[in-house]
């Protein structure tokens, strides 16, 4: 409960000086022992946050670098795959052409008229005659 008003409730008295002294003691204790520690903690947390932000930025840069490197590796792999596929196509075309050539040769070999067969044919008696 408060002190109900009497005539001088708005006039400070000697208690004010003691109150001021009490507050100054609190201020001294807080300034001397509490705030430096609190500020040091805040500074340390800020430093940690800055460090972690720096590390995150570095990690982001590294991730970008690795991504770029992965893209480069992929491009290289695609180029090599293209070359291998092209070579495979060339090899296929060569094999097809070679097979056709050999087939044609065999065909020609089988279908050509041999000289001894021609001689045999001409030596045969004509049965009908």
């Amino acid at each position: 409960m408060i002190d109900l008003p009497n005539g001088d409730f708005l006039l400070p008295n000697a208690t004010t000086l003691v109150e001021a002294a009490v507050f100054l003691i609190v201020l001294f204790v807080i300034a001397k022992w509490v705030m430096p520690r609190l500020q040091a903690t805040l500074d340390e947390r800020r430093r940690r946050i800055d460090d972690q932000l720096g590390a995150a930025a570095e990690a982001a840069k590294a991730a970008a670098r690795y991504e770029e490197r992965a893209e480069e590796v992929l491009r290289q792999a695609r180029r090599e795959a293209r070359v291998i596929i092209d070579r495979a196509y060339e090899h296929r075309d060569y094999l097809v052409a070679e097979g056709m050539r050999k087939g044609r040769e065999e065909y020609e070999w089988f279908t050509r008229t041999r000289p001894d067969e021609e001689r045999a044919d001409s030596a045969l008696p004509v049965a009908s005659t």
Binding site: P12, N13, T16, E19, F23, L24, L27
Partner: peptide, 17 residues
């Protein structure tokens, strides 16, 4: 106990400080 801030002595002491 009353709130010490409901007495003019403390508030004057704080303001003066």
């Amino acid at each position: 106990l009353p709130a010490p801030t409901a007495n003019i002595n403390l508030t004057v002491a704080l303001a003066a400080t």
